[in-house]
């Protein structure tokens, strides 16, 4: 009898503690999520606010009294955002495709082929992981701008970024994880290396391959320093750099800033929301970058 009571008391105590812990967990996570999302919220509300709306008088919820879409129109007309978007898309898509190709090719060569000098080439490729592009700014500037005269061309913005040891490293890893028998079976079926890579191996590792592609797209879209360095002409600028210049040109019209920012992140955020689960899973799987 006595022991039953004690047991029940204990159970109740555990429930309480457990329940409270739960609530605290949710609370903490929600607060952090709120803090991270708030800037996005402000970006939207500010972008929709009237230009002359009193700046100091925003309420605690910060919802504009009237919704004004004309900020977007004005921002779009103030700077050649159409051109910026074209540049960003063009550069990001071409770079990503070329990068995926070289990563798959390099990864395959290191994972599945055997040839003299392979080990040294592999070490050299891995070694470049230790050399950040930022510290090679000056010689690369000399190569691209002074020797090749590639300033204000897409070449300067695309070609140096089409290869990275990271992509090759990652593809090699996932290729090595595929069973060896797959290649043997394909070989008996009469498959050559290139066909095997394209028809059998890449479809196998598609999730990782696509994750890599999406991330590369994001990183390329995010590119800034390089664009600053190699573009002078306005029609070569990307959205990122265009936005940066835009903020200094329109002064402190924050609603225009926010409208422009919102436009510039829209493709990325949409793409992210579209692939978010695969992307997060992909990053979890391979522990990217």
């Amino acid at each position: 009898m006595n022991s039953t009571v004690t047991f029940e008391r204990k159970l109740g105590w555990w429930r309480l503690r457990f329940g409270a812990g739960r609530a605290i967990t949710y609370l903490v996570l929600s607060v952090v999520a709120l803090l991270i999302l708030l800037p996005f919220f402000w970006m939207v509300t500010t972008a929709l606010r009237a230009p002359d709306e009193e700046l100091i008088r925003f309420g605690p919820l910060l919802i504009p009294r009237h919704v004004h879409f004309e900020n977007f129109v004005q921002a779009w007309e103030t700077a050649p955002f159409g051109r910026y978007f074209f540049n960003s898309f063009f550069i990001a898509i071409v770079t990503t495709l070329a990068f995926l190709a070289t990563s798959a090719m390099g990864g395959y060569a290191f994972a599945r082929l055997r040839f003299p000098g392979q080990h040294i080439l592999w070490l050299a490729t891995l070694g470049t992981l230790m050399i950040p592009a930022e510290v090679l700014l000056i010689p690369n500037f000399i190569t691209l701008a002074k020797w090749l005269h590639w300033s204000d061309t897409y070449y300067a913005l695309i070609i140096p970024w089409t290869v990275s040891a990271f992509g090759i490293f990652l593809m090699r890893q996932v290729f090595l994880q595929q069973p060896k028998e797959l290649w043997e079976a394909a070989r008996l079926d009469g498959c050559g290396h290139l066909r095997f890579l394209w028809q059998i191996l890449l479809p196998q590792v598609r999730p990782t391959f696509l994750t890599l592609g999406v991330l590369k797209f994001f990183w390329t879209w995010d590119m800034f320093l390089w664009v600053v360095l190699f573009t002078n002409a306005d029609d070569m600028r990307t959205v990122t750099f265009g936005l940066y210049r835009f903020t200094s040109e329109v002064g402190t019209s924050y609603e225009l800033w926010m409208a422009a920012s919102l436009m510039s992140i829209a493709p990325i955020v949409l793409l992210f929301l579209l692939v978010r689960r695969q992307l997060i899973e992909g990053i979890s799987r391979v522990g990217l970058r």
Partner: peptide, 20 residues
């Protein structure tokens, strides 16, 4: 001769079916 030209077919222990 490379495997494909030997006119042999092989069944593997883990089958090695193309999963996709």
């Amino acid at each position: 001769l490379p495997p494909a030209e030997r006119d042999v077919a092989m069944v593997f222990q883990n089958y090695a079916l193309y999963p996709h």
